[in-house]
Nucleic acid binder design. Structure first.
Lengths: 167, 167
DNA sequence: TGGGCTATAGTTAGGAC
DNA sequence: AGTCCTAACTATAGCCC
């Protein structure tokens, strides 16, 4: 049998409460510069953690780019949770590999969609897809990729920089 | 004064419990195909919501690309929460604009970093930056962007497709 | 696949350091 | 900017539909 004095409990409640705990906030741009920075830092880290969990649990690729209020870039993906500022050149190479792989996957999905929907893309839209994917010609090969049919180059660069990135 | 019968409370507790509630899980690849799909769907939506909140609260750009276990692409960013499959061509144009803007921001940040750190990039690394950003030449202009010094084109496409996307 | 539900796990606001 | 703290908020596992 448990007996609780309700009034005492409430009084005690107020006296012993150490912090306010998490308060509900409205989702609109924070006014205070300082709390905006703090919130950004905490939530960015929370977001990246969620992305990592999703990626591991479901075995899927997740890529995120976030620009901080101060313009610092934070990226995760195949290159996981490294800020550009901290990257050494060797790490930059890994980052770019990841970005290339992601881009080729994007190109692949767009191509697949086009084929699946028997979608005849107007030249302008096709051009934009090329810009989006960073590839400068549009024939679709047997693997469903958008590739450079003339030179096997990507954005005009020699294949030796990119061939190991093709999936 | 509140009186609670502890034993009855516990018994009642067990009897009236309707679900198991959320259970702790290990962060490792889910074996069961069905629960993997369900988890992917729920967590992807949670991730995108978190990204939206971060973006609004802190007024920052956030871009995410996720590939589902079935290979479907989900993207948010300037183009918010649309799957490629559902895009109509006009929407694809908006998507590509967002992607271009994001890419130019990436190019800008990399350029800024290079200048700030007085970093003399070796040719290979510089080439990879170009590949990463989708721009095919590397002189840095007054605005800190990596631009095509020869023709103001991006990936060889006429400026009329891209000039309105420059920041 | 996407909604519902409940109980619990996990995240985070606000504070101090 | 990162760490710790607590209380309260939100997300979500496991279930059903």
């Amino acid at each position: 049998m448990v007996v609780i004095n309700n009034i005492n409990k409430n009084v005690d409640h107020k006296k012993t409460k150490i912090t306010k705990g998490s308060q509900k906030i409205e989702i609109k741009k924070l006014e205070d510069k300082n709390s905006l920075q703090v919130t950004f830092s905490k939530r960015r880290s929370g977001l990246f953690n969620k992305a990592m969990e999703l990626s591991v649990l479901c075995g899927v690729e997740v890529g995120i780019v976030v620009f901080s209020p101060n313009g610092k870039m934070f990226v995760i993906g195949c290159w996981w949770d490294e800020s550009i500022d901290k990257m050494r050149l060797e790490e930059l190479e890994e980052y770019v590999k990841g970005l290339m792989k992601l881009r080729l996957t994007v190109a692949s999905r767009i191509s697949e969609m086009m084929m699946k929907n028997h979608c005849l893309m107007p030249l302008v839209a096709a051009t934009m897809v090329a810009i989006a994917t960073g590839l400068d010609v549009l024939p679709i090969n047997n693997n469903g990729f958008v590739v450079d049919g003339n030179s096997n180059s990507v954005c005009g660069f020699d294949d030796r920089f990119t061939q190991h990135l093709r999936m």
